[in-house]
Design a protein around this nucleic acid. Structure first.
Lengths: 205, 205
DNA sequence: CATACAAAACGAACTAGTTCGTTCGGTATG
DNA sequence: CATACCGAACGAACTAGTTCGTTTTGTATG
């Protein structure tokens, strides 16, 4: 029982219920695999209402994507120059809201770049984090040899490594043991600590 | 003009042409988005032949996936204890054969774990690389504090960070400049160098 | 070389099922 | 009454998979 299902069940606007049901549906099946009838049914709403609020399937998908990205951007932020902690927060968010990562993957795979309004959210978020990495470099907590954009992307890749791993299938079937998750998190944080350690080896380029 | 298109065009078995057309189709559109008619057309073959060789859409998808994974497994291998070079090879393969990465992502998102034969290929590959990482640790070239499986996954995440980055859309539209790719590669290799440096900070757990 | 034959392949039509998006009658609520 | 909503049905387009008659290709035989 996740947040979306709770929101979709009890007494909220039909529009909200539809959006929440669409979140679960699109995250699970993607744009091509999602079924409008299933969204309406799970939202306990009629298709007539769905199309009264959203023009078509793709627009609803983009709406869901943007909501997800906004939540993501407001959740995992770099604070107080603590870059390893930021990586840990990214990891936690990915574990807790795996749907957000899935939606990003769906969008990357299924769209031909026509999700600009949602992408803007993500780019703005990234630029802000990059800015803070730069501050951390000036404060001497991150090796100045790194290009901040490159480092940011690497941190993203590290934090989401376990979600993009080929064997990461059947997420609903068998949940990962908490102890295993904790070990992965520790390794992620530690990896970033090693990455940013000032003058560990030398300049990059 | 990639390898698949070349194979699919000139005089090869219809079965081979179909498989190669299916590779391009599934990598581009996934299982749900792929169109059987389009595969047959691009293979210059008939649907009757397609269903003579492959039982149904999903089986063809899994066939394509397995072929991709085998190529991947035979291409990017860890040799001579040189783990950073291995990361570079992974990155190169991801750049050159982006379709392989896309297929893995499609399979992870679109299947409910029923792609075991193909997954076995990947798990066997991973175990072999993990074994070699362990050897590199015994040789003192990789910090022994790392759990090899954890490290392997982190290296994967780092090497494919730029492909899984949210902004990595429209791959066919605007190709990335070679200089940019080279810079990313250098950063990937350097990141792994920092990761594995013996006793850089201390034990992990 | 010419004929006969079988397997492989093609092409086009067809079936059966799915799915998006629309429409419409009915109900409640303000 | 008007608005919001539901449930059910509808239509049109699409799609996986099948069928079937025809054509090509390879091979064996006389």
């Amino acid at each position: 029982m996740n947040y979306s299902e709770i929101m979709a069940r009890d007494g909220a606007d039909p529009q909200t219920r539809i959006l929440e049901a669409a979140r679960a549906e699109f995250a699970a099946y993607g744009l091509a695999g999602a079924r409008i009838d299933r969204i309406a049914k799970n939202a306990q709403a009629s298709k007539e209402r769905l199309y009264a609020y959203y023009s078509d399937k793709q627009q609803l998908f983009l709406e869901v994507l943007e909501v997800n990205l906004r939540e993501f951007a407001s959740d995992a932020v770099l604070t107080a120059h603590d870059v390893p902690a930021f990586a840990g927060a990214l990891f936690d968010h990915a574990v807790l809201h795996g749907d957000h990562l899935r939606m990003i993957d769906w969008a990357r795979l299924e769209t031909d770049g026509t999700w600009l309004p949602a992408l803007e959210v993500m780019l703005g978020y990234r630029d802000e984090q990059v800015r803070r990495i730069r501050l951390a470099q000036e404060a001497g907590r991150v090796d100045a040899a790194w290009d901040p954009v490159q480092l940011m992307t690497l941190i993203f890749g590290i934090a989401s490594a376990w979600m993009h791993e080929p064997g990461a299938v059947v997420p609903r079937g068998n949940p990962v043991a908490p102890a295993v998750v904790a070990a992965r998190r520790a390794n992620v944080v530690h990896a970033v600590e090693r990455l940013i350690a000032p003058s560990a080896i030398g300049p990059i380029n």
